[in-house]
Simulated scan of single mutants.
Amino acid sequence: MAEKKKKTLISHGIAAQNRRARYDYTIGDTIEAGLMLVGPEVKSLRAGRASLSEAWAGERNGELWLFNAHIPEWQAGSTVAKFEPLRPRKLLLHRKQVRELTGTVARDGTTLVPLQIHFNDRGRAKVLLGLAEGRKKHDKRAAIAARDWQRDKARLMRDRG
């Protein structure tokens, strides 16, 4: 029997991931927020072509926005629905959540870092935001050493039976 061809479109999974964020920051709490997009942006996300490497979230006029997230233009789209790939995108949260997050960021000196963009069961695009504190170089080295030790410890335990 012939094998099924693997789909390139992401229907219910991770569309973009910021892998460097967990290295550069210590992530505290995480919160899931909706993302206001236009049609071709959703198609581009489903194709898995977005990048969150330089993205960050912040407050503007009492609302939270996602800045510097690169979602490239959909190539098969018409010229009518063109959009700016790096435009700010509004995050959809309740007012109480917005107040809590902006207060925490202002008070504690933390940053809102987008960790991933994914599609939920209903097919809606969601952003996983993390309250992050920056790491110094020595903190990064300690985190790498701890992760390596955990991996070696697990390997030793597995080999011993």
Rank of each mutant, 00 (worst) to 15 (best):
L86N: 11
D152M: 10
R89W: 04
A145N: 07
P114L: 08
R46E: 01
R124H: 15
W56H: 07
M36D: 14
A145P: 02
A33E: 08
A132R: 00
I27F: 06
R95T: 09
K137I: 09
G58P: 00
L37A: 00
L128Q: 14
K96E: 15
K4S: 13
A143C: 08
L92C: 06
V98F: 07
N18F: 01
R124S: 15
G123H: 10
W149F: 13
M36S: 15
W149D: 13
N18W: 01
L93I: 06
I31Y: 08
S51R: 09
G34Q: 10
K140A: 08
E100T: 09
L91T: 00
E41R: 01
L9N: 13
R124Y: 15
A50H: 01
D152K: 12
Q75D: 14
A143K: 06
G58Q: 02
A154N: 07
K5D: 13
R135S: 08
L45T: 00
G34L: 08
I71E: 00
T26S: 14
S78I: 08
S44P: 01
K136L: 08
A69I: 05
K43H: 10
A145W: 12
L45M: 07
K126G: 14
G103H: 08
P88Q: 05
V80D: 09
I14F: 04
S11Y: 14
R22V: 11
A55C: 06
L66W: 00
G161I: 03
I31A: 08
W65K: 06
E54L: 04
V98S: 05
F67L: 04
A142M: 09
L93N: 06
R22W: 09
T8I: 15
Y25Q: 03
T110S: 12
E32R: 14
Q17C: 12
T8C: 14
Y23L: 13
E133P: 01
